[in-house]
Amino acid sequence: MQGYIWAYEMIMPKDDAKLNGDLGPRSYSYFELERMTEGFKDEIGRGAFGTVYKGVILNDIQKVIAVKRLDKVLRNGEIEFQTEMKVIGKTHHRNLVRLIGFCLDGPNRLLVYEYMSNGSLADTLFAPKTPPPWEKRMQIAHNIARGILYLHEECTSKIIHCDIKPQNILLDENGCAKISDFGLAKLLQPDQTRTFTDIRGTRGYVAPEWHRKLPITVKADVYSFGIVLLEIICCRRGVDWNLPEEEAILDEWVYRCFENGELGQLVGEEEIDMQHFERMIKVGLWCIQYEPSLRPTIKMVLHMLEGLLDVPIPPASSSRSVI
């Protein structure tokens, strides 16, 4: 992989002081984090590499935190830790979850994040309760796009997130959406824009090129964002086999409705400006084009969402959701 490295392959600094000096987040002992979480009592999330607990920084006016305790530290967990420390520690944006600190204490590997009190976008969007109104959903879509734009074009080490999905979008106390979980992140060197690698990400959000053994570029994140955008628009999961067969795969159903001039079927009883609704649908369909070269950049996507760019009619896409 010349000039291009997986975030997984970063070299660990030789001591904690160097790590802390390079990145800024504070170093905590395992004992401190054990106290802050009351013995890791309150579990608030679980992922492929570890479990997240709610805690409180005792000397910071009861600042609530989220502590990610990595379980698989022998290989995957260690690599995950190196990834998140080196990548997240150097990223600062209002639409990214902020890393506050870390723990390198014997075999223990933990990460300390800002606490996101409103849970994930999946909780908000797919729960039985009433989903957010259209304006709020569009604000969330804008937040996500801005966060991805920072990763792709504005931070020091260009990053492909590789796992954009509602479960990895968290909402703070003000409902501001922030991207989390950089465990699958890939770093882009200045002279490199793509790489070959094994499939990463989550079924239903993975771009077709992962399965075609093609180089992976930032357009893979654009595809995933497109699926998430359609989910935000329609307030449902991208794949739902509880629905009639013709509606089960969201992107296919959306395109059929768009092509047949039947977008009203996607709206339901919600009162939405149909011109704006159609515009957002077209943005989503552009994002999920089968060929990466046809997809817009995330900057173009954001400009389309903001009304700064016209959104032409998207071509028919042969892409299918991976289930």
Rank of each mutant, 00 (worst) to 15 (best):
R237P: 03
D273F: 06
G45H: 06
K90I: 01
K54Q: 07
G268V: 09
Y30I: 00
E78Q: 14
G39S: 12
Q2D: 13
V87W: 10
E246M: 07
N76S: 09
D273S: 08
P292T: 03
Y255Q: 08
K299L: 12
I233P: 00
V97D: 13
I179Y: 01
N174S: 14
K129Y: 14
D240Y: 04
V112P: 00
K18C: 05
R109C: 00
P13M: 01
R137A: 05
I144V: 13
L96Y: 01
V267W: 13
I232A: 02
A122H: 03
A248D: 00
D181P: 04
L294Y: 04
N174Y: 09
D191F: 14
E259D: 14
N242I: 10
I100M: 10
V254K: 09
T217M: 03
V301M: 09
P292R: 06
L99D: 04
I313K: 15
V64A: 11
P215V: 11
P107G: 06
I140H: 10
M280G: 02
K18V: 08
E80V: 14
F277W: 03
S120Q: 13
V222N: 02
G77R: 00
L58C: 01
A127M: 09
M1A: 15
P13A: 03
H92M: 15
H276E: 14
K282W: 05
V301R: 10
A316P: 11
M274K: 09
D22Q: 06
D310S: 15
M85W: 06
L111H: 05
K213M: 15
N242D: 15
N108L: 07
L187M: 12
L149Y: 07
F126I: 03
K136C: 02
I44E: 11
E114S: 10
A122L: 02
K136N: 02
F182V: 09
S117K: 06
R256V: 09
D198Y: 12
H142M: 13
H276F: 09
R236P: 05
H92P: 15
L58R: 05
G21F: 11
W241D: 07
L187A: 12
K282M: 07
C287K: 01
G55V: 01
T37Q: 08
Y30S: 00
Q2V: 14
H161I: 12
L19M: 10
R35H: 01
R203P: 08
A220G: 08
K165G: 03
V97Y: 12
R237S: 11
K86T: 14
V311M: 09
L250F: 04
R279P: 04
T51M: 07
E231A: 01
L266T: 10
G201Q: 08
I179W: 04
A207Q: 05
M12E: 14
K219P: 00
E269W: 10
K129R: 12
Y30W: 07
P133R: 06
F102D: 00
K213G: 12
E252Q: 15
E306G: 08
R137G: 07
Q139Y: 03
V254F: 08
F225Q: 07
L74H: 10
G55M: 03
L171Y: 07
G21N: 11
V64P: 11
C257N: 09
I100A: 02
